[in-house]
Design a protein around this nucleic acid. Structure first.
Lengths: 231, 231
DNA sequence: ACAAAAGTGTTGAGAGTACACCCATGC
DNA sequence: GCATGGGTGTACTCTCAACACTTTTGT
């Protein structure tokens, strides 16, 4: 964030903030940066920044995200806009929040000049956050849980190839409860959006697992009627 | 809209635009105003205006809506933010769109100085709209259809007391297909959010109908698991 | 051999869907 | 008496939920 932009003109400033989720260390985590300047200097905050004049909101969010994570082509969707008049002590700042899902292994957070530190934190116990970012985080978490049940966004938290066991882990972590393995597999496979990859099995300490990947043109299914999932 | 606000400072201007739906003349209609000044002078547009410095986005939307309709306490929810750099020919303007539902009989649109005319138009065949308001309208219509199926927002399109026949008409109009009367009534009543009003029946040309109203603390049910409706 | 994750079917309950007739009133 | 919307029940289908054991590998 650049302070100079806040006060210019009579119009509010517009920022784009991103809630970037991943699954790491067995829990749902969110990407935070430590602020290098006031206000809230030293406080953790969601990555974000001002919208530039030639870019759309989606482009601004994608650019910010690429700056913080080095990754483009990640799942990104607009979440909600936050505009309480006193949410930023510097003046009127409206934040258009986005919500992103990344596979943990493909992302190495990058600290830039505004952010002295970058890190992943468990959503269940985040540090105190700057501005109203705790509210934004709660909103995003609720949206993620909700979308798990009627879309296939969860695939975005995994690499392009994964086993059904890994996928089930993602669901169980986010929903916070165990799921029945047989019902889970039957339902996922019946969606017809996964194909078995015949390049091998996931080898490990135990019985090798089949590897699946989303079918090529699979844009995350949203519900046409009824829920896709209701575990 | 006030032109002067667009260009001030380097920040984008922020507007709040509202997609106000109602059921009228047997179809889903939207409130439009005819623009009294350029750009798009004479073109129909969604009601809206700039956010004032001391108000939140929700408050700005509610204020604009009250100015256009004379009604407060209407159902209003944030829809989406639109920010393509060239969506407004005057310069960078970001619109936070809201979505509102009103009972037709309780609203008498009011023309103000910026709007030479105000009127209801069928969503199925609206006139050409200013800016990207056709995209906003499509987004809002999709959201309304979607929310019909897992919430009870449809109640907001009717007065506080209504018959099940009137409610079914609302669903059929918005979803665009006939519903089975027996299944509809069973499902709505099984939600337990309506109470029969014992002050009388809806008398008319035919057999008098029972009158219901939402139970007092009924905040529109969102789904806990599964869909509430899947007709 | 044993520990650990992979993989596989069936049954019962509940929700959704389809479907047809009588009732009460105004005209 | 007739036209019109109000009001009611049942049978079939399909999806969801609960539940336990065998297989395959690494160590």
């Amino acid at each position: 964030m650049v302070d100079a932009q806040v006060a210019r003109g009579s119009n509010p400033a517009i920022t784009v903030d991103a809630v970037v989720f991943t699954i790491r260390e067995g829990c749902l985590q969110v990407l935070l940066i430590r602020r290098g300047r006031p206000p809230f200097q030293g406080r953790w905050a969601l990555p974000g920044g001002f919208v530039e004049s030639s870019e759309s909101l989606d482009q601004a969010a994608a650019r910010e995200l690429e700056e913080e994570t080095g990754v483009s082509e990640i799942y990104l969707e607009q979440l909600y806009s936050f505009g309480h008049p006193d949410r930023d002590p510097r003046g009127r700042v409206i934040s258009v929040a986005y919500f992103a899902l990344v596979p943990a292994k493909e992302v190495q957070p990058i600290a830039d000049d505004d952010a002295s530190e970058v890190g992943w934190y468990a959503v269940s116990g985040p540090p105190p956050l700057a501005f109203d970012h705790d509210e934004i985080l709660r909103t995003a978490t609720a949206r993620l849980r909700s979308k798990l049940e009627y879309t296939t966004v969860a695939f975005q938290l995994l690499p392009s190839r994964f086993t059904l066991g890994e996928l089930q882990d993602v669901y169980e972590i986010i929903l916070g409860r165990p799921l029945d393995k047989r019902n889970f597999r039957r339902k996922i496979l019946s969606l017809g959006v996964l194909t078995e990859w015949d390049g091998g099995r996931r080898t490990g300490r135990h019985r090798p697992a089949r590897i699946y990947s989303p079918i090529p043109d699979h844009a995350d299914r949203t519900r046409e009627k009824g829920t896709i999932f209701s575990f």
